[in-house]
């Protein structure tokens, strides 16, 4: 899942300052799960912005709110047509993808990001999320017992551990487990310690052109993004 964090209220207020009618648009998928932009956060932000406005007595904004099931699919954005008729700006609480999807779909509508899209991760416990995947496009989890050194090692090294490990913890953060110790322990458990003895050549970041595209069908979409 994509994990994000809502932007500070001051920043959101600064962004919307030039606009009158603001549609706060939530996203019902990842942003809901990570508490950044689901329907509840949309209405909380709505209340907060209204209160801020009432207290400061500055430019009169009018706010409306809506939450789509997903902002990153054009079909869902079609449902927006009615909602945007009398709106000057969309404040999207979708991730960066949602914001761009809106920009693509509605060429004349300014769109603002209400959240900072942070990482791809998982829930640790209620209200706590951890990064787990860097979307490097070249997954090596087979060799590392299902533990990703790229995201979970501070240095992202492929042949760890480094000399900075102390009591199984990372030198950069003594509360954080060393990813390579975790990998070692799990490989040992799985009786695959031989994988520790191998050398993994450094990854070549330059071979990955952006933006990337995945096509599960043949010859259906052509144009930009295919390298």
């Amino acid at each position: 899942m994509i994990v994000a964090e809502q932007k500070p209220l001051e920043e959101i207020r600064r962004m919307i300052a030039p606009y009158g009618r603001v549609l706060i648009l939530g996203c019902g998928t990842c942003m809901t799960v990570c508490d950044a932009g689901g329907e509840r956060e949309v209405s909380f932000l709505h209340n907060a912005l209204q209160l801020a406005q009432a207290r400061s007595g500055d430019v009169a904004h009018t706010f409306s709110e809506h939450t789509l099931k997903r902002q990153c699919d054009p079909e869902f954005l079609e449902l927006l047509t009615e909602k945007t008729a009398d709106v000057d700006v969309i404040l999207s609480l979708g991730c960066g993808i949602g914001v761009q999807a809106i920009a693509e779909r509605l060429p004349d509508m300014p769109v603002l990001p209400g959240v900072n899209t942070s990482f791809m991760g998982m829930t640790k416990e209620s209200g706590v999320w951890d990064e787990r995947c860097a979307a490097c496009g070249d997954c090596r989890l087979e060799d590392t017992a299902g533990i990703c050194p790229i995201t979970r090692c501070t240095k992202g090294i492929l042949n760890g551990p480094c000399a900075g490990v102390k009591n199984g913890k990372c030198e950069a953060n003594k509360d954080m487990d060393c990813a390579w110790i975790l990998i070692y322990q799990r490989l040992e458990r799985l009786q695959q310690l031989d994988k520790m003895r191998r050398y993994y050549p450094p990854r070549n970041y330059r071979t990955i052109p952006r933006p990337r595209r995945i096509m599960s069908k043949v010859d259906t979409v052509v144009g930009e993004g295919d390298g």
Binding site: R40, S43, F44, N47, L51, A54
Partner: peptide, 13 residues
């Protein structure tokens, strides 16, 4: 009582 309710209370002034 939800967080939004508390904000609404402040909104009344």
């Amino acid at each position: 009582v939800e967080a939004a309710h508390i904000l609404s209370a402040f909104e009344t002034g």
